[in-house]
Nucleic acid binder design. Structure first.
Lengths: 330, 330
DNA sequence: TTGAAAGCGCTACCAC
DNA sequence: GTGGTAGCGCTTTCAA
């Protein structure tokens, strides 16, 4: 089914059909109706590949996230998608499972599809990929990774602040032996969280002890981190998790071992995903405004070249949300 | 950056560049290298819109799910994606939030992009949409909704069996007053689950009482359903949930009200998502093989026209997975 | 308000 | 092995 067949059936030119389909209101109402009827009768669906090719511009935004199973990413995606939809765009979603090779493949695919812009909500990164995107000339926005400037915007969370708040809060509750449960040591933003935790601890000097365990980004990974932690003989009174998703596994493994939360051990998460409120006990965590991030990302991408209205770099401070998984040190 | 520029730089024809880029091994090694070098030097990314248009076939599979926040759908998506990737395809993801208008828009977008096939993992449906897909001639696979035949495959879960197993199990534990917590009464597969629950209850006749509450598909929705249920004065000793995702909210609301699980009330889920194992108490549920569904969907879509190897309709029976959220009736 | 026709960047067929 | 070139289905001048 092509434009031409529709044109033939409606007895007009392809140009006119195109005008109707694109709502160029120069078309006479009667012919418009004719065209629409013909299109419907033929079950016509415009070939978007041809449209993008001919028009030169695409109505798709490319988005890449590290882990579709982690609600954090889905929340950002949904906000991005909603904002895009409002502006008449759709979103092409790619996910990497934290692997740089998949990141690279995703970026190439999206550039190949001539996306109107790229949102990289990922923890893994590679300078070559950043350069490839820059060279492609596409507007881009990075969350956590990448550098701002030119057509690229950077949204960054101050993990240091967040971790400091968590540690300080736990310290004030009397905790002196704390552990960190994370994943993917090698990826910079995750490393940053761990480092931030360690740095926050360091401020208390010799009074405190800490330890870190890394696994993978899932509840199962959280459980595994706890096994590793406790297996090492270290006896923390608080466990700080890199995110809420893993924290769910931490809670469960602790329970399985008969360790009461927060009675014996306090636990904190990071992100404040919806589920954090539904764990038992409900999770104390640091809020990251995922919806705002998604919206900002879209705005940044669709911004006019000239109008430097929006900042090219934005910094977010995570807010501490106290629930029931933390309490005084035993 | 176009094929032609690459050709110019490599001093070959566009045809040759195309051959190299498509790995048609008729090209001499030396020219192949020249071309690759030129492409790399120019940061060339083939325009996939043009490729699809010219080639006539696309390497993308379209997938539509109802709720990206419900891990059930993400699990199916991931399996589908992995299988597609293996075969050299990528997946275009759409989500509907259970709205038929978005379903329709998603289908149109995917047909417009000339996806190689459509996977509809959704609860909402509309005969007109099914007809539109059929008329488009694209291979399609439906989960839960739609009818098999022609180029379309149907994957269906026997909710009746699943619900029967849940109810029977609870009955055997002594439960006589049970409630159902679901969402979207109007959507057929969800209605089926509810009906199946009611039917299963009916088999026990006057000995048992039941009640249903509908909310939306999220933990918050589950919590809300409990409020509605208990607010009505009904005092169930067991709550059967339409899925695990909502069950998480049911558990939490019960706890908030001081109702012990499974001491006072037993709770069951449906789907057996990873998180079901991480709730407190761990959730008794019915397993649906999400990974297998994703894989089967892909295979069905990529199947040769002629080879009727795979069945055009497949039925799955959910298996009961007993964990800690169920126990003897008080 | 409408039509004719020149591309958009690529593939695939036909020559050489 | 390689090049020339006719489309793929659409948008977008330019004329009428």
């Amino acid at each position: 089914m092509t434009l031409e067949e529709v044109a033939r059936r409606a007895k007009v030119s392809t140009a006119t059909v195109s005008r109707v389909l694109n709502n160029l209101d120069v078309v006479r109402e009667s012919t418009r109706r004719k065209v629409l009827q013909a299109a419907a009768a033929l079950n016509y669906h415009p070939n978007l590949n041809a449209r993008t090719l001919a028009g030169g511009k695409s109505r798709s935004i490319g988005a890449i996230v590290s882990n579709l199973s982690n609600p954090f990413f889905v929340d950002v995606l949904r906000a991005l998608d909603a904002a895009a939809r409002e502006r008449g765009y759709d979103v092409l979603i790619e996910h990497t499972d934290y692997r740089v090779t998949r990141l690279r493949a995703g970026v190439r695919s999206l550039i190949g599809k001539r996306a109107a812009g790229l949102a990289l909500i990922v923890s893994e990164m590679d300078p070559a990929v950043i350069e490839e995107i820059r060279a492609s000339g596409l507007p881009a926005v990075y969350y956590d990774v990448g550098a701002a400037g030119g057509k690229t915007t950077n949204i960054r969370v101050r993990y240091e602040t967040g971790m400091q708040r968590a540690v300080q809060y736990l310290y004030s509750l009397g905790h002196r032996r704390m552990a960190f449960a994370g994943h993917h040591a090698a990826l910079s933003p995750l490393e940053v969280r761990k480092k931030a935790f360690l740095a926050a601890m360091k401020r208390y000097g010799r009074q405190v002890q800490s330890r870190a365990a890394l696994s993978h980004d899932s509840p199962a990974g959280g459980a595994q981190a706890v096994r590793e932690l406790l297996g090492s003989g270290f006896r923390p009174t608080a466990i700080v998790c890199v995110n809420d998703y893993m924290a769910m596994g931490v809670l469960r493994e602790l329970r399985a071992r008969g360790v009461a939360v927060p009675g014996d051990v306090s636990v904190t998460g990071f992100d404040n995903i919806e589920l954090a409120e539904f764990t038992n006990p409900a999770l104390t965590t640091l809020d990251i405004p995922r919806a705002a991030i998604g919206r900002m990302a879209l705005e940044a991408l669709l911004q006019e070249e000239g109008s430097e209205t929006a900042p090219r770099e934005v910094l977010l401070d995570p807010e501490l949300v106290v629930r029931d998984s933390t309490g005084p040190a035993r």
